[in-house]
Write a protein that binds this DNA or RNA. Structure first.
Lengths: 228, 228
DNA sequence: TTTATAACATGATATTTGTCAGTTTATGCT
DNA sequence: AGCATAAACTGACAAATATCATGTTATAAA
């Protein structure tokens, strides 16, 4: 099994402030796991007895509304940590995590992380900063959901996907989402999301080939996102 | 000037895990301030060089959307801490805080808190838990904003106000908000908020006398909030 | 390849919500 | 008290969005 202290993924997240000894300790008790596309990593109401460090792949983190519709809160990428919120408050999870494509993830048991949080103040400050950033992003999302139209949110989401996952030489986004997932990110009906994508395509702001989306005019997308 | 180690308000928030010595130190460098209703405590883009501990009164924490409308993210009550997010990430504030009624607040400088965060792991764990809770609430709000109708959100907000601020013997909510603030909490136009309040009143779910709102049928409100 | 199933797409229509315009009521100030 | 201003309210209409129905295309399994 590969070792945490040599893992490149680790450099990307708050685990990078751990000492070599702490990493070796974590390495010895972590478990690695492969997840198939569509598989549920954990569901709402489950007790997470640790955190996941994403070695490869992408998953969606979502919550069911009382109306019976799924809302995707955010996407978690390679190098990100998953489940820290529930770890810290030691509650059952309020969110569900589902693989968007095939993944490889490492599970680190709760006690190990908690011990390091108490002993290593650099680490706990780093986790605090992570949480502070998540909170800022969440606040921004609240404002967008409450105040922006679906069209604005779609434009903004496309820009965010480009930012987070990048695109290849032909401007095709490196992430492939179903239309339903897109709708569940921006909080609208699948049909509405499809309609607006078609409209963007007609206006030559994006191009569509199945799940391949490429951004042709990011300037225009930015303007739409801001309400023009 | 009153002393932190004797302050009752402190018991309510994460400062309660500080030692007597740490509290005395904080007490010596804190400053107390009175804020008038409507006054801005800090604005978006300002650098907060510390946190505020609310001794008395209520303020709204909001953000301007690019559409030019204010979205209220949450209300901060007596006993709560204000500004910890910006403190931890050491960034300019992304939010604005405005007094809803006359307030009394204590300002604690950044360096003092940061020092304690690094030295006192109980305290930093407590702050982590606070942030984790805020994050959970933010996630729930995202789902509500994205998936629920304005009517559902209004019903839910009324229940939340009752939960957080309580009501007097006649079921009148202990908090008085303008119709505009109510609209900015649930993310709708002021006219829509007024219309729905009138509808609730007509249906005898609430009663209205100016800014005095009383909840007559919380069961029905709960059902509406959940989509029936 | 054929076939079954799910995903994608589009039109028609209903519902929700925002906007504008105007009226009434409350509030603060001299 | 009287006046000026802001807040609360109501109606009419327009715009945004959801829902339902139905057709088409992609995908996976036999």
């Amino acid at each position: 099994m590969s070792k945490c202290e040599q893992c490149i993924v680790r450099q990307l997240n708050s685990l990078n402030s751990l000492s070599k000894e702490e990493l070796i300790k974590i390495s010895s008790c972590k478990t690695s796991r492969k997840i198939k596309k569509g598989e549920v990593i954990f569901d709402e109401g489950e007790h997470l007895n640790g955190v996941y460090c994403i070695s490869d792949g992408v998953c969606k983190v979502s919550k069911m509304s009382s109306n019976g519709r799924e809302q995707i809160i955010h996407l978690v990428n390679k190098g990100d940590i998953l489940g820290e919120r529930s770890l810290i408050s030691d509650e059952i999870s309020n969110l569900k995590a589902t693989a968007i494509n095939d993944m490889e993830i490492c599970f680190i048991p709760r006690d190990e992380i908690i011990k390091d949080l108490k002993q290593n103040s650099d680490f706990s400050m780093n986790v605090l900063k992570d949480m502070a950033l998540s909170l800022k992003n969440a606040d921004n999302l609240i404002v967008d959901m409450a105040q922006k139209t679906v069209k604005q949110r779609l434009a903004e989401m496309l820009l965010n996907l480009n930012e987070k996952f990048g695109s290849n030489i032909d401007n095709v986004l490196n992430i492939h989402l179903s239309r339903e997932d897109i709708a569940n990110i921006i909080g609208t009906a699948t049909e509405s999301a499809i309609r607006l994508l078609s409209e963007f395509k007609k206006d030559e702001i994006i191009s569509l080939k199945g799940k391949n989306i490429s951004l042709l005019d990011t300037q225009k997308l930015k303007k739409i996102a801001q309400g023009f």
